[in-house]
Design a protein around this nucleic acid. Structure first.
Lengths: 197, 197
DNA sequence: GCCTGATGTTAATGACCGTTAACTCATTTC
DNA sequence: GAAATGAGTTAACGGTCATTAACATCAGGC
């Protein structure tokens, strides 16, 4: 439980840069030499820290889905004020995540199939559990929707919240961070409200 | 102007299979031999129809953005009934597209940077023009929003509508096609309605 | 003052893969 | 009916790239 003011360890540096590069140019589009260069060492030097390129991707994806799920569970447990408050907290958490870790968001649904069977299973299970958190609370709020409908709606709202990485190409003229948060929050609530129909 | 009951030409076969494979495993993840095998010829045979693997991707991406933009323009021109009707028509069109061409949707925002500079520019320009169609009508409907806000909201709704490819991994238990259409339509309208604040 | 382990380095290896070469075969064209 | 053209084939080339080998450096612990 360190206070996280420590200097980042070499492994962490590598993971961060690898995430950035993978998100920019895809897993296959980035060479180990490039990743090495990004942290000031050269290609094969990485093998002192990771078993291979695949291992980096695996650690990134497992880590991200785990953090997402844990964060969600915590929010479900801690929010007080009924289902609306829980859903609001889940939305806020996901927005933070989407804006903080755009690179990982991109990776998360782009490179999943590059993983070994076992890792892929693990990631998918974490994803599914995270979705279940949302589905449970949304069904509580809008009980007349079918399970399938609600699940699809939750995925759709994820798509909405995860849309910010696509804005990068548009140069300037974006709203600032707090405005974007507020906007996404409003849109997500609006979409769910339409479920009541 | 053929009535499109013709047998698909070989080029078209190749493009369709290439799109499917690229979407499944990424551009770099698919070999030319595989693409060839999918249409019953072998790797290098493809070079009778395309200048190279890159050319296939380029044709797919330019084609898709072009069709999207043209469809949008047509709908803006033809819809009657004021901005709400136009927006409704744009949403319907995008939903059709997202459900019909999931593979291309996936490609569209995943492999854009594999293109030659000139093709990439063209695709981006078509994308931008398509977005502008939406931004114009949404601003008409919700005039108090800033340009940046509206643009971000439009992108977010694209994310929402394009979310269906991510559902594939979830096996059965999805709503049927018409139900999915209706649901996405409702969610999109709900999100935009929240812009009014 | 050495030994050891952690962390790098560069050079070599080997697989994969896009592309080209050289050649075959059927079909159309004159 | 020969010539040309279109559509394939297999074999070879060449580059890229992850991974491994072999070697270097340098910190601490004893």
């Amino acid at each position: 439980m360190s206070t996280r003011t420590d200097a980042p360890t070499r492994r962490e540096q590598i993971l961060r840069e690898a995430a950035r590069l993978f998100a920019e140019r895809g897993f296959h589009g980035v060479g180990v030499d490039e990743i090495g260069a990004a942290v000031g060492i050269s290609g094969p030097g990485l093998y002192r820290h990771f078993a291979g390129k695949d291992a980096m991707l695996a650690e990134l994806l497992v880590g991200i889905s785990g953090r997402l799920y844990d964060g969600g569970r915590k929010r479900v447990a801690e929010a007080d004020g009924g289902p609306e408050a829980v859903l609001g907290s889940l939305i806020d958490g996901h927005i933070d995540f989407a804006l903080d870790d755009r690179a990982l968001i991109t990776l998360h649904d782009r490179e999943l199939d590059r993983l070994r069977e076992s890792d892929r299973k693990l990631v998918r299970q974490l994803q599914r559990q995270y979705v279940e958190l949302w589905v449970a609370v949304v069904r509580e709020l809008y009980p007349h929707g079918t399970e399938a409908e609600v699940r699809t709606a939750v995925h759709a709202v994820f798509g909405l919240l995860n849309s910010t990485p696509h804005l990068g190409s548009y140069g300037a003229g974006l709203p600032g961070r707090p405005a974007t948060e507020a906007l996404l929050r409003r849109l997500a609530h609006g979409a769910f409200a339409a479920l009541a129909g």
